[in-house]
Design a protein around this nucleic acid. Structure first.
Lengths: 134, 134
DNA sequence: AGTATTAGTTATTTTCATGTAACTATATTA
DNA sequence: TAATATAGTTACATGAAAATAACTAATACT
């Protein structure tokens, strides 16, 4: 009776999900959903674009981000950056000059997160390209 | 002139983002946004719950999923499962019986994806718990 | 004939996220 | 004095997503 690699991976998956269930269940009972409020909240289109651009250019001003990210409005950029800052993903540095200068960059956590997510994205793209071929 | 670990990680991050930019830019020009249509589309609240429950229980019928996932409606479950099936994440098996029996499970890709995402989720939770302490 | 079971669908309403456009503050420069 | 530059904000309109609730199909059982 051998355990195959597939079975090993299934067991791993269950273990990881169980861990997640155990730690999020108390939150759910208090009306807070980490799946929605932490993960899904940060992985919307504009957040991802902001993270990728900051990851690539390291430091960008508000206007530079706005110019680089095609289609984003001042409002959505402002809303998104505030959210990312609140989640500890983006660092905001305000130079009190006139006209104003504000520089955005990723925090160490933001960098790690961005790297994980872009790797995930690339991996998904690999798969969807495979699918397209067949 | 030494290169620190942090700098190494920054370089890695840039490389990965560049790769992603290069391959998604042609899509963007054709009006298709992989960031939104592949990643963000699959990482909403109900999709994640479906993936986690299927990852944990392996095979579940429609009604079992509905009972297990608190708060989901027939409609949202139906919509979500169809989407996940279209993305190659979920496998649907229809036993043509009366009353109907339909069993859902994760595809191999769905399992790998679920594992990556739940690891990411756990990692984010670790960080946000750290934040809370300080 | 009527009820139960299962896996959905359909139509409608409500909510929320997003988009649009105009506006603000302040010093510098022409 | 008026224009310029920057980093936003505010109020409002719009659209997509999600919630709600009622309905369907097919057969076996009572």
């Amino acid at each position: 009776m051998k355990i195959t690699n597939t079975e090993k991976q299934d067991i791993k998956l269950k273990k990881n999900i169980k861990k997640y269930f155990l730690r999020t269940q108390p939150c759910l009972e208090r009306g807070f959903c980490p799946t929605k409020d932490l993960l899904a909240d940060v992985l919307d289109k504009w957040s991802l674009f902001c993270m990728y651009h900051l990851g690539y250019y390291e430091t960008l001003r508000f206007g530079e981000l706005k110019n680089n990210i095609e289609g984003i409005s001042s409002r959505m950029l402002s809303v998104t950056l505030k959210k990312l800052e609140a989640h500890g993903i983006v660092h905001r540095e305000n130079f009190t000059e006139i006209p104003p200068r504000v520089e955005y960059s990723l925090t160490p956590f933001g960098k790690e997160l961005s790297n994980k997510i872009v790797n995930l994205s690339n991996w998904i793209l690999d798969f969807s390209e495979e699918i397209h071929k067949s």
